[in-house]
Design a protein around this nucleic acid. Structure first.
Length: 559
DNA sequence: TGGGGTCAG
DNA sequence: ACTTCTGACCCCA
């Protein structure tokens, strides 16, 4: 199966394809017509229903979560995860016998010292960067090298377990920050791992600097198409050419990080001036300058119980009459409400665990809404459209994919579990979405939409929903330790081989996942569950002062 | 809080 | 004949 070129189609394009197809010249966002011309025997499957991908994604995330001690597990898209294993490495460095590195044992649990795996700490597991990396024959190995070796063995173990228990193969990068872990992971795809080793001896450039220096600017995570074009233009001292043959994001230029770094005027201040503008964050100059120098001090974020937003969208060849729009809004609203139930409903145990349940019991309950409570209540409903640009006088259509949106409070009735999603969706269209659509498109007619998106955002997490899968408030437990350990982070990136996501997509329907609590740099209002703002009732979504919650709960029990 | 931008897979 | 369907975070008013 995997030897055959295989691609997933959405509308007129290939959205993703397996490695066999890639080796035949197919790539993401390719037009179906082009794909068939280049690779006539490609097997194409309609992939507009992505629920199986979503399920596989949850399964992967849940699997990784089970290993974390500090709760730092961050998803990137459906198939990638960052994990900060600093604390596990610290602990295992302490128990390591430096006189018998070959006979080491990695403890994956602090409570049970028998849980883990034996490994040889005198070597790295898997590939390394640089390829000719050799540790000098010395008696005393430096700490950082040892830490990365431990990280590499942990990655190897976790990949092995993932394969055994879930049937997914994975690619992993092991390094001291997210940037480097992600990039070094690219070196041996699709199913291997690579560790970026620290410098040995007196090298002029650090390994990390050399490594990142060879990358094209646009390959650096955080430097997207716009930023990259601006920097390319500056480095080349002329406009950077765009490759119109590619679907999007294509540039004809090849400007490396090293070239940018070696530009005489290159400094954070210049970059700030060059890159500042609408959409870019303040301090972007400093941030990019750091990226060019392999510096990335961003934290792996805490795992979350619930997503920040849920959205559903569809694109259209032609959508220009109100009855059609209402029909589509209804379809989208149904999907959205279903998604809300899947992603935001948890069993009561998720909120307040009494006794652990078997996986079978959990899965049975996952299929129904019985005994379920909302883990979070989105407060805002957002309607987004993408109007198709009017024809220019010369008959061509200007290519613009700009979106416009309108938001409104999400009515509380959508949280009712006794009503069907069908009737709730009808009600939502009539009572909210129609009005929102009129605000967005006040003209009676004449609009021509190429896309409609429906989203719920502004999650108010339900009181008590701050526990991790282990039932502990990891966020708080490790706040102090974090400060102490900042300098010694080892970060893994996992990427499940896409081949296998499809292969195993038929696995059981999981239910809830992840967990909680960010101490992020928000303006402080959305991490408060028990603040002056009050709490949100898991039964009805009503927000009321904390002191009133006990009595309110009693009301539900009585009713 | 609402609307938009950029970046990511 | 046309860039899919998400999701995160950031900025400004």
């Amino acid at each position: 199966m995997k030897a055959l070129p295989f691609a997933v189609q959405q509308k007129q394009i290939i959205v993703t394809c397996n490695y066999t197809a890639r080796s035949r010249g197919l790539h993401k966002l390719q037009l179906i017509r082009d794909a068939r011309r280049i690779c006539p025997d490609v097997i194409i499957e309609l992939g507009e229903d992505i629920s199986r991908f979503r399920d596989a994604s949850k399964e992967l995330y849940k699997f990784i979560e089970a290993y974390t001690w500090n709760g730092k597990v961050e998803r990137l898209g459906f198939d990638e995860v960052f994990m900060d294993v600093t604390d596990m490495i610290d602990y295992n460095m302490e128990i390591l016998n430096r006189n018998a590195l070959e006979q080491s044992f990695f403890q994956i649990s602090r409570e049970d010292p028998t849980l883990g795996f034996p490994f040889d700490a005198s070597v790295v597991a898997g590939h390394v960067y640089p390829v000719d990396y050799q540790y000098p024959a010395e008696d005393i190995v430096d700490e950082q090298t040892l830490r990365l070796r431990l990280g590499s063995h942990l990655a190897m173990y976790m990949r092995h377990e993932l394969e055994q228990h879930k049937g997914y193969s994975a690619t992993v990068g092991i390094a001291t920050n997210k940037l480097l872990a992600k990039l070094v992971g690219n070196l041996h795809k699709p199913k291997d791992q690579t560790t970026l080793m620290p410098d040995v001896g007196d090298t002029i450039d650090s390994n990390a600097m050399t490594f990142i220096g060879d990358h094209e600017l646009g390959k650096i995570p955080g430097i997207g198409f716009k930023l990259a074009q601006k920097i390319r233009e500056f480095v080349l001292n002329r406009p950077a050419e765009i490759d119109h043959g590619l679907v999007y994001g294509g540039t004809k230029e090849h400007v490396t990080v090293k070239m940018a770094r070696e530009c005489p005027e290159m400094n954070p201040e210049m970059l700030e001036k060059l890159l500042a503008g609408p959409g870019s964050q303040h301090g972007i100059g400093q941030k990019v300058w750091y990226l060019l120098h392999a510096i990335d001090d961003t934290e792996v974020s805490q795992m979350r119980t619930v997503p920040r937003q849920i959205s559903i969208e569809d694109s259209y060849i032609r959508l220009d009459t109100l009855p059609e729009v209402l029909k589509e809004l209804d379809v989208l609203a149904k999907s959205l409400l279903t998604r809300m139930r899947v992603d935001l409903l948890g069993s009561e145990d998720d909120i307040d665990p009494v006794s652990p349940e078997s996986e079978e019991a959990e899965e049975t309950k996952a299929a129904t809404t019985e005994g379920k409570k909302w883990l979070a209540h989105p407060k805002t409903l957002r309607l987004t459209t993408r109007p198709r640009q009017a024809l220019l006088p010369d008959g061509t259509r200007p290519r613009s994919f700009k979106r416009i949106s309108h938001s409104a409070p999400l009515p509380n009735f959508v949280f009712g579990l006794s009503e069907s999603v069908e009737s709730l969706a009808d009600k939502l269209v009539k009572e909210s979405l129609l009005g929102m659509f009129r605000k967005l498109h006040p003209e009676k007619a004449g609009w021509n939409l190429s896309l409609v998106n429906l989203a719920v955002t502004n999650m108010a997490e339900t009181a008590g929903n701050s526990k991790t899968a282990n039932g502990r408030d990891i966020g708080n437990m490790f706040k102090r330790q974090e400060d102490v350990l900042k300098d010694f982070r080892v970060t893994d990136v996992d990427e499940v081989a896409e081949d296998n996501v499809w292969d195993a997509g038929a696995e059981g329907t999981e239910h809830e996942e992840e967990d909680k609590d960010e101490t992020e740099t928000h303006d402080g209002w959305d991490n408060g569950e028990e603040e002056e703002d009050g709490e949100v009732c898991g039964d009805c979504g009503m927000r009321l002062p904390s002191f009133a919650m006990v009595a309110h709960r009693r009301f539900h029990v009585a009713a």
